[in-house]
Design a binder for these strands. Structure first.
Lengths: 363, 363
DNA sequence: ATGAAAGCGCTAACAT
DNA sequence: ATGTTAGCGCTTTCAT
């Protein structure tokens, strides 16, 4: 239990501790950073002084000397009305916890919405961060090119889609595999005519996911003609596309690129008096809040965001310690969360849990 | 346009700029921090050198000297399975953007789940943050007491419920007013027998919201006996309570403490063949993702989280510059977002938007 | 209006 | 195994 100390006091410094322990400042520093250099009894004496005084090294001083801030930068995009990083949340949580294990912190920064590079350079020049975690690789390669050019350490959530020269470590989740899991699940509960409801063709991630459905269908020898539909990621757009597809009464399965689209399908089923999970099977992608609470519960592909975060942190540490990373990329497997939109007797929908923060609780 | 510079080079320092501009280091420092001290032509020469070299002051050095990190700490709670700070997201976004305007950044940290104080003290001793934003005031006053005791600057999202001695600035949203809005809305569309479905009595926020419903009902002279129910914040629990309430066929309105509870009510209506917005009106609280996408769209109380964030940042600046804050607390008004669960011809449910980050998009 | 000197708290390099 | 010296890049104070 460290003693209470007011901010207006000076916090203890190395010198304070050194005097208290009757050693030099350097010895205290060594006790912290190279304890194996100290004799056992000296170490204990120093440690006692540190505890008594409640000493914690001044980050600024350490950072100035070592040129390492122990900060990892994460750009938090400007919020747009209606957007939400609900999933990001699981990811960021784990990022914060994992980096904390090595005394690192996450520094959130923003940048001009129209400039993906804004913010990075300044933090580097100010030596405010040691490395970046980038989560926007699907938008293009602008950030990664910039950071490579200036030699800044970084890792990405997302494979380098369009950049064969990329040499940075990355972690990604296999979207095609996710769609494959979804399709196989629909087949296993008896569906044969399974539609794909996905994003526009310009979405790399969307096309990747779609390829999993195509592959699965082909493996079973099922015809996909007329069953693959692309639209905007919107409940109502999906609802309307679903109505069109459902005019073909043989269509009984929907594999969707997102929970939003899947929920649109559920709306269409509702309007037609079709029973989700009984008459028609629907699978979403994200395992978002909507999948948890929507009636009657939405089966969805879930990404291992926690594992993504942990592996990214591991990669950051490798990069910072100049350890070679081999292989450069790690592809993780999504899983399927089964609910009543495909299996009638699956558990009931759960909660929008009261989050740990009051902002969520009160919301 | 600043020149490209590799990390392996040294970044330019004050000395570099001074040499380039033919002045002393101090003059460059003044150009940055007290430009009014310089002669116009000197200032321009220095500014030109800064631009040419792409100079940005080293944060560590500045921080060591000024004892100000320009960091604001925000504790990000450990993630628990199934929890989500979906709403936090809007809040944090705005926090990041607003603090950026004055060159501040948000530092995310974690702490042991079982110790609300963990993490704060260490950041203070390390002089890693200038101030904290606390979002957990409903859990108790442990953090605020600690920070007050050590004299650390902080502001809170949430009024100091149990702490008459609190002297810190805060911003909160009037939950009672939100429930009042919801109740009045239900009355305005013709409901008279309006039930309250809320949290357990131990929840201060829950009781505050409930009081708004009670007040509104009383103002209209409506009887609330048997209509106020408390349960856990869970879709299924709410579904079952709703069924009980709906056995009284005169009950046609539900005012809920959360979207989760409201969605549970919608499930119950569905199971009874009752039409939301036509036979029964339902209002949630949060305007969460679930409210956006759930069928047929959920009317919900929305908190001005963006404004909360902006006001908190303003308060932080006041505290840091020792400006007196008067009044200490600011209570903001929620608004009502009307959807089809109360008004049949309201706009259709929208999207779970693809967020700006790939983590969300891919999720 | 500009410059010189000192020092924030730490650690790397070297000396003992 | 421990101590001494120097200096990271900046701003504050004081001198010019």
């Amino acid at each position: 239990m460290s003693p209470i100390r007011r901010l207006t006091d000076q916090y203890p410094t190395l010198a304070t501790v050194a005097e208290r322990a009757g050693v030099s400042r350097q010895t205290v520093s060594n006790a912290l950073n190279n304890p194996e250099l100290l004799r056992e009894d000296t170490l204990q004496r120093v440690q006692a002084a540190i505890d008594e005084l409640g000493y914690t090294p001044n980050r600024a001083a350490r950072q100035l000397r070592t040129r390492s801030s122990h900060m990892i930068g994460l750009r938090f995009e400007p919020a747009q009305e209606g957007t939400s990083n609900a999933l990001m949340d699981r990811f960021v949580h784990t990022l914060v916890e994992t980096t904390a294990e090595t005394g690192h912190h996450i520094l959130l920064f923003s940048g001009a919405a129209d400039d993906p590079l804004d913010g990075y350079d300044e933090l580097l020049r100010a030596t405010a961060v040691d490395a970046f975690v980038i989560t926007d690789t699907y938008t293009g390669t602008a950030e990664t090119e910039l950071l490579r050019r200036v030699g800044a350490p970084f890792v990405t959530f997302g494979r380098p889609w369009d950049d064969p020269d990329a040499a940075h470590p990355w972690v990604d989740v296999d979207g095609a595999r996710g769609a494959c899991l979804a399709t196989e699940h629909l087949v296993s509960v008896g569906h044969r005519r399974i539609a794909w409801l996905g994003w526009e063709e310009t979405s790399r991630i969307g096309e990747d996911r779609r390829s999993g459905w195509e592959q699965s269908m082909a493996d079973h020898g099922f015809d996909t003609r007329g069953l693959g539909v692309r639209t905007t990621d919107n409940v109502d757009a999906a609802r309307m596309e679903a109505h069109k597809l459902l005019e073909d009464r043989t269509v009984t399965g929907f594999c969707c690129a997102s929970d939003t689209l899947a929920i649109g399908v559920l709306h269409a089923l509702h309007e037609r008096g079709l029973r989700p999970g009984i008459d028609v099977g629907v699978v979403g992608f994200d395992d978002s809040l909507g999948a948890h609470v929507t009636w009657p519960g939405l089966t969805s592909v879930r990404q291992p965001l926690e594992q993504v975060a942990r592996e990214l942190v591991e990669l950051v540490h490798s990069v910072l310690s100049h350890r070679p990373v081999e292989p450069l990329g790690r592809m993780l497997e999504p899983t399927l969360v089964v609910r009543r939109s495909t299996v009638p007797d699956a558990p009931r929908p759960g909660t929008i849990p009261r989050a740990a923060s009051s902002a969520a609780t009160r919301g």
